[in-house]
Design a binder for these strands. Sequence first.
DNA 1: TAAAGACATGAATACTGATTCATAATTCAT
DNA 2: ATGAATTATGAATCAGTATTCATGTCTTTA
Lengths: 201, 201
Amino acid sequence: MAEDKTATIKEPKTARGEATRQSILQAAEKVMGRVGFNEASIGSITREANVAQGTFYIYFKGKDEVFSELVTEMGRMLRHEINEATKGISDRLAAERAGLRAFLSFVAAHPELYRIVQEAQFVDPDTYRAYFSTFADGYRQGLAAAVQSGEIRPGDADIRAWALMGIARSLGERAVVFGHMTPIDELVDTAHDLIVNGLKT
Amino acid sequence: MAEDKTATIKEPKTARGEATRQSILQAAEKVMGRVGFNEASIGSITREANVAQGTFYIYFKGKDEVFSELVTEMGRMLRHEINEATKGISDRLAAERAGLRAFLSFVAAHPELYRIVQEAQFVDPDTYRAYFSTFADGYRQGLAAAVQSGEIRPGDADIRAWALMGIARSLGERAVVFGHMTPIDELVDTAHDLIVNGLKT
DNA sequence: TAAAGACATGAATACTGATTCATAATTCAT
DNA sequence: ATGAATTATGAATCAGTATTCATGTCTTTA
């Protein structure tokens, strides 16, 4: 039946509590970003946060819970960045460029968070899927509208949305995971040219 | 003279041993593909393989080692498939299409292996990086040659290689992880059109 | 300023699952 | 056929770490 998870309530009631919770969260981001979810022990997180182990359980049910919170938080931040970067740009291809640029800047600035989202695929599949489905939905709508208005050539919007997300993710990974130090503008220029004009002569 | 670097020797000397080793490998592929690396215990693998727990350590140093072997094996298989599918095709854009098709067919046929490669990013980063670096190198050379010969328009070959790999991976993930059931030919047609012609009208 | 509630501690406990190893069975070479 | 090598077993260890909890400190408020 419906099991009540309310048994262990969290939510700090005090400024002090909120601060502690926050420092645990930050420590978790740092440690998990560096060594990954599995290697990150509660002990290593609380040590980084300068609190005792037991304190962790005042605010979180376990490792999974902090992790999910980090992923969700990261999603919010990234969506916000991209919205800011593209809002007010009506030209679809220009928006494409601005969005790509914002994405790559973000992952360059937050490599740990990038890693955490990727790892969510295995640690918290539901959150992971929700994360990318949300992105894909928005993307698809934008592309469909642009096809409708004749701004871009016809083609399945969902498949294209995934293809374009793939380009962005792959270039992000190239930089963050594989250490290729290409300047972002060069990445954006090359990728955008490919997206707009394709490979053909 | 033990040219083996394996301080603790493995390598079955007997048909029986080879068979057992193989069934452990298959069981590991199955179990790890289903529940992921961390949830896959040695016990669950040996149970699946119908051998005792101790038997595992006759052939492998630990979980990491089977895992690496699976990733490497998968890389070999996939490269082979793509080489077969594209060999003899001199036209670059046609090869692009054939390679994409081969890739998507492969991941559709081996969803577990796909998952395992992704997880290698966290379990065995070196192998993961080697895997994609190898792919990227080959890809880059092909693109650079095609630019040289005037077959495709100029543009940084390395960035393009990563962008195109990203498209393939993303469409694979869309199918395998997100369960979108689009027929492969439709995926290939749409993606190839995007790759060749871009989005512009 | 004192009682109540919130927060913090960290040693003790509990659990999970990896790894070992003494023993037994099977296969191989002669 | 028989001793030697190889392979197989699984219960017993071992290690790491997640989680609890009895106790102590801080903060609020009446």
